[in-house]
Amino acid sequence: MMQSPYTFVHKAPASTDEKRPAIFLLHGLGSNEHDLLQLVGELESSCHIFSLQGPIKHAPGYAFYTFEEEGFPTRDVFDKVIQFTQAFIFEAIQEFNLDVEKIYVVGFNQGAVVAQTLALIMGSAIRGTVALSGYIPEFVAVEYNRLPMDKSKIFISHGEYDYVFPFVWGEGSATFFKDFGADVTFKTYPDGHGVTAENIQDLVAFIAGDLTTILN
């Protein structure tokens, strides 16, 4: 049994007779643990899917952290959520016998902020990170410990007309990770603050590129 305080949905792959890849989903502000499942539906048969519910109530759903204004998470709350989320991933690896070389984190909005932070502090423990319409908080970029990302990759996407999280925030994240030496895929779409059908195809392809032997 998982000891983590997180509420989550777990979907197991068709076969669990050997170590399998896992995808961890982190939703956006005011949403819930069911929101992002459709993004990775094509990968359900071959991967464990863990979709986490943010720990903070925020109508009509939940949040992963509080903030004074967009772009500025409350530091003490954010620090704890990062610790808890990292611990959840490591615990799930043990509890569900996951393939440690194929761990993926997918986040949108607040979830993308958490996902990018985890990519930085967990380094190559996360094979692939998908950050949809997010950013890197300044205190994370400046103060958080970073681990090498030489065995990992990151997919960052942003809508060109995003007025919730400005487009320049997505560009800034891509530049930050490139400067850090990460393998960065940066995609933009003629959209607002959302996820287009093309965006979904691209993120699935980004993950599936590592899973050819399982998917075939």
Rank of each mutant, 00 (worst) to 15 (best):
P190H: 00
S31H: 06
M122Q: 04
L203N: 08
A141K: 15
R146Q: 13
E160L: 12
F67S: 11
D150Y: 00
L39E: 06
I126S: 04
I82Q: 09
P137C: 12
I103D: 02
Q38M: 11
V81A: 06
P137T: 08
V40D: 10
F78L: 07
E198L: 08
K57F: 01
V204T: 14
H58W: 06
D162E: 10
F139A: 09
S31R: 14
F50S: 13
G134N: 05
D162M: 03
F177I: 04
L43Q: 05
D202I: 07
P55N: 07
A22F: 09
H10I: 10
G194V: 04
K19W: 03
S45N: 15
N199C: 12
E160V: 06
L211E: 08
S51A: 15
Y189I: 08
K11A: 08
L25Y: 00
E70K: 14
A208Y: 03
G61W: 06
F139S: 07
V100L: 12
M149C: 07
P21F: 03
L132I: 14
N216I: 05
A174S: 13
G209Q: 04
Q86V: 01
E44H: 15
F206Q: 09
D179F: 00
G172K: 05
F78P: 00
V204H: 04
L26S: 04
K151A: 12
S173Q: 07
D99N: 08
K178F: 00
E143Q: 11
L29M: 12
G61A: 10
V140T: 09
M1S: 14
Y189Q: 02
D162V: 02
A205Y: 05
K151D: 11
T213Y: 02
Y144L: 11
P60T: 09
L25S: 05
P73Q: 11
D202Q: 05
H158K: 02
V105W: 03
V105I: 14
D191R: 03
G107S: 05
G209C: 04
E44S: 15
L26C: 08
P5I: 03
R75M: 13
L52I: 08
G192F: 12
K11I: 14
A205N: 11
L26R: 05
F72E: 10
L132W: 01
G30K: 11
D191A: 14
V40F: 10
F90M: 14
H34E: 09
V140C: 14
E70I: 13
S51V: 00
Y189M: 13
Q116N: 13
Y163T: 10
F155P: 00
